[in-house]
Amino acid sequence: MQPFTSLTAPACPLGLANVDTDQLIPARFMKRSRADGYGGVLLHDLRFDEQGEPRAAFPLDDPRHAGARILVARRTFGTGSSREAAVYALWDYGIACVIAPSFGDIFASNAVKNGLLPAQVSDADAETLLALLAGGGHLTVDLEAMAITLAGKDGSGQPQQRFSFTIDPVRRLQLLNGWDDIDLTIRHTAEIARYRSERARSQPWTFPEAAEETRPDQAVQAMKL
């Protein structure tokens, strides 16, 4: 996984609350392989009408926010379905950081595992950022310092305002280091094996008998309905 340390990029104010993962990627696009790319279907049904035409005034397609790599949204971003494809859609579009007052738990976990930073700010700071970015603008998101600064519109201006954000400290370290969970887990192989044999001994029912094919009559009977 690619580490995340600091990012200065155009930021798009997506002034929506409750952006669920069904919005981030509608279910009908999830049959595709990752190799085909998910960026084009990010927020598809909010960006395009039923004829496939771009909807006027959708922030992501507003030229003032072209090239956005940071999104600012309102509360409970990424709630709902556990689909990691919601993160793939953001990432493949180019988004590496979402700033919002709260996130769906599974979304935040999926985001970090793909190198995307979910930065949590207060409701008031989210509103301020949305207002400041209305006409376009760049943000610098510094994960080491857990700080967001508004940069000049060309990305080189003096920082004007500073906001702090929060993130679970473990997730912060994972992002900063680009750690891969599986590599970490392999170091615990012996402990896993010990745990497994103890569990099989003390609670054997947690390992079900090798499954015979279920006979329908037996299963229905077992339902005791």
Binding site: S82, E84, I106, K113, T185, I186
Partner: peptide, 18 residues
Amino acid sequence: FGIGASEVAHVLMTQTLW
């Protein structure tokens, strides 16, 4: 609890989760 695809892969390979 529900998990994402990266975690599903981790469980497939290790039968554990962080």
